[in-house]
């Protein structure tokens, strides 16, 4: 039997909001160590890797490893039915055809159960090599979301250029161009708003605004975002999920024709 309980359904609601624009369906791999999801978007341009550790759940039991193919749209619909203060429990049998989502109100007076059919999926699982990145930028997730939103109005790509001095985001389009420069924070006491750059080598790469716009849907999960960039490899955009895990988005760069 598989059972995982979270006191705050809001975490799972935010996780679904962070993936539903990219993924139609995904396999949830459940084991003793927790729940892992790795899935590409339909166009195979980006990859989402979600990790929720078992010790981050309020209750977690997984008697045998399970691979559950889930419709993200259906799961998102179900999670919209949970109140923000509700406790959520995911439950499945050992060889499941369905998974149950059980929502319990904080006063325990309302109990709602939603059962979702699982789907058979034949997903390709990609091996992500251990990569040493030339630049790692930590910054406010809200600032990053704002930059993506603002610059997306001017072009279909955002070029990220990172040097020792700071990080520069640029978009160029038919109507004009836009750029935002962020200097590395000198005094990092305002931790959440600080811009911290670890740089071995300067980098400059372009990425599709469409995908970056999907990634920043994870902003409510964490006040900080970490961007890992190396020339000619996918960008990694990482948000921590409280004490329970993290979501990483990998995005293949755009290259000059």
């Amino acid at each position: 039997m598989f059972e995982a309980r979270l006191i705050q359904s809001s975490i799972l609601k935010k996780v679904l909001d962070a993936v539903k624009d990219l993924l139609n369906e995904a396999t949830f791999e459940c084991s003793d160590s927790g729940i892992q999801v790795q899935a590409m978007d339909n166009a195979h341009v980006s990859l989402v890797a979600l990790n929720l550790r078992s010790d981050g759940f309020d209750k977690y039991r997984c008697d045998r490893n399970l691979s559950m193919g889930m419709s993200i749209a259906t799961m998102s619909k179900i999670l919209k039915c949970a109140g923000p203060e509700d406790t959520v429990t995911l439950r499945a049998a050992d060889n499941p055809d369905t998974v149950a989502f059980i929502f319990e109100s904080s006063n325990k007076e309302k109990l709602a159960e939603y059962e979702m059919k699982l789907i058979n999926m034949d997903q390709e699982h990609l091996g992500i090599p251990e990569t040493f990145y030339s630049c790692v930028v930590k910054m406010s997730s809200h600032e990053f979301a704002r930059i993506v939103r603002d610059l997306s109005q001017f072009g279909e790509n955002i070029t990220i250029a990172c040097t020792k001095e700071g990080v520069k985001f640029t978009a160029i389009g038919d109507s004009g161009s836009a750029n935002v420069k962020l200097a590395q924070t000198a005094d990092a006491s305002e931790e959440n708003d600080a811009v911290i750059i670890e740089m071995q080598e300067s980098v400059k790469l372009s990425f599709s605004c469409r995908y970056l716009t999907c990634f920043v849907k994870a902003t409510p999960l964490c006040s900080q975002v970490q961007l890992s960039i190396s020339n000619d490899v996918p960008l990694v955009c990482e948000y921590k999920i409280g004490d329970i895990g993290q979501i990483r988005y990998y995005l293949a760069p755009k290259i000059d024709d």
Partner: peptide
């Protein structure tokens, strides 16, 4: 013009 690479060009199928 820039063209979009595929993520599978970087990560191998396991």
């Amino acid at each position: 013009a820039k063209s979009q690479r595929n993520i599978m060009a970087y990560f191998k199928v396991r």
